[in-house]
Design a binder for these strands. Structure first.
Lengths: 206, 206
DNA sequence: GTCTATACCCAGATAGAC
DNA sequence: GTCTATCTGGGTATAGAC
């Protein structure tokens, strides 16, 4: 994580993670578009063309950062598959997702929120977190569910994002964001479950 | 709002709003960074340098679009000043804010969410919506309030954003987003009021 | 395998003619 | 109010040094 440049040659993997680390720092500070490959390269004591040995292009660096979250999503998916579908499962799933959020992960979430055009392109090729979420959401809603119920389930699992984005520009810290995310997840889970059961009643009378 | 280009000379204000209208369309479709000034200019049958007569730079176009929302925020502020501080005022304020949201406003919200580095810079100079929100939030919380209570109030007023961002990439429509925003605003308002009164009890025992 | 030099293209922006 | 010409700087491709 150090900025100092070792005079000796770097090894491949190490250089790669140094690039990612510096890039995350710049992307958060100045934004992706306003960070030039030159900024990143110079901070590491190399030229910008060297970056192109490790990454296909600038966007590839951003995507690599964003995809660091995938492992935890897969773990959540795996855990969820083995759980029985009880009424409070949605709330427990949301809390589990919040629990495994580290400060580094929050920074990556900020990055994702700030670069939605790129997230959109990732979404089109099915490589984004949101697509991974879909599998989880499908556990809770089906084709008969109303749009409202589907949206409420998604929002229940997305309270970290909401809390994070509401906290932007304030002095509210990491733990308070997570605490509020937990509280709102519980409240929204109740709404979602209620919407779903009202869908069910609706369908019976059809 | 028409795309067709009139052969005769345009008048100043008219050209300006034509530029804004086309720019909004491109920024939503392709994103701000991937829209070139050339795209905008050619769609209007002019050259890119002509744009610089009407706007200082490309960012100025985006900022002008985003600030179209300000009027409604001021109206909300004015209304709120004349309301007595009763327990359900937060919920009613949130609903009122949701009620005055048009489809065009939602598009501008998508723009704001997608361009957070620019929003951040606007925030630093106090020109953004979030700063305007602060005055409203101050009506509900004071310096004694916990960070959690402050964040919950902010989230209560921000449910359109949350619902909108959760609906991205789905086929959920405008009215469903607003309906869910209303439901979650009511649930969050209750959490916020509860957090505030628990702060109060806390302060009494200090 | 790791990195540099260099050249290219395109986008944003400016100056000044009409 | 709009144009042409031009500048600057960033991302990219490639050849080749170590």
């Amino acid at each position: 994580m150090s900025n100092s440049i070792s005079p000796e040659r770097r090894s491949g993997e190490e250089t790669r993670s140094q690039i990612l680390s510096i890039a995350l720092k710049f992307f958060i500070e100045k934004g992706y578009e306003r960070t030039s490959t030159r900024d990143i390269a110079e901070a590491l004591g190399m030229t910008k063309s060297s970056l192109y040995y490790h990454f296909r292009n600038k966007e590839d660096i951003l995507i690599s950062l964003i995809q660091l979250r995938h492992t935890q999503l897969e773990e959540l998916q795996e855990w969820l598959e083995n759980q029985p579908l009880v009424p409070d499962l949605l709330e427990r799933t949301a809390h589990r997702w919040i629990e495994c959020t580290t400060p580094e992960r929050l920074q990556v979430m900020i990055l994702s929120q700030a670069n939605q055009p790129i997230m959109l392109r990732l979404h089109e090729t099915g490589q984004d977190i949101r697509t991974g979420f879909q599998a989880i959401i499908d556990r809770f809603v089906d084709n008969n569910s109303s749009a409202e119920a589907r949206l409420l389930v998604r929002m229940t699992l997305d309270t970290i994002s909401s809390a994070l984005s509401a906290s932007r520009g304030t002095d509210i810290d990491f733990y308070e964001v997570l605490s509020v995310a937990r509280q709102t997840a519980s409240a929204l889970a109740k709404l979602a479950v209620r919407a779903k059961s009202s869908d069910h009643r609706q369908n019976l009378t059809d």
